[in-house]
């Protein structure tokens, strides 16, 4: 893998991360924000794979597996919270959850 390919992959990873962050900012639905979070996490996953390939050692893929487990755990807790919030607040809009302020 050549240096230019690496930078290319890095740009794609950064793009993925950026879309994820934008997704959290733009959409008000809790579900959509969780999905956007997943997209954001996939950015570094790609970056690790590319870096590992560039340097030719397996540590990158090791880190990728760790990132996957985190994404899974994050989503699980997120969905549980989503269900609990929908029952108590009656809406899946993240602005309904903005009582703490000032």
């Amino acid at each position: 893998m050549t240096g230019t390919a690496l930078t290319g992959m890095m740009i794609v990873a950064a793009g993925l991360f950026a879309t994820g962050v934008f997704g959290v900012l733009a959409r008000r639905g809790i579900l959509f924000q969780l999905i956007a979070l997943e997209v954001a996490l996939s950015g570094p996953a790609l970056a690790f794979i590319a870096a590992g390939a560039y340097h030719g050692d397996a540590e990158g893929q090791g880190m990728f597996v760790l990132v996957l487990t985190l994404a899974a755990a994050e989503v699980a807790v997120g969905l549980a919270l989503f269900l609990r919030i929908r029952r108590s607040k009656g809406s899946d809009d993240s602005d309904a959850v903005s009582g703490l302020k000032g």
Binding site: F17, G20, L41, P44, L100
Partner: peptide
């Protein structure tokens, strides 16, 4: 309130962790 606090912490810590991982990946690269 508790649900709200934990949801906010979830979203923002997710974003922060994503950023930190991307940082480590770049350094690793």
């Amino acid at each position: 309130m508790a649900l709200e606090a934990s949801y906010k912490f979830l979203v923002m810590s997710g974003l922060a962790t994503a950023a930190q991982l991307l940082g480590v990946a770049l350094i690793y690269a």
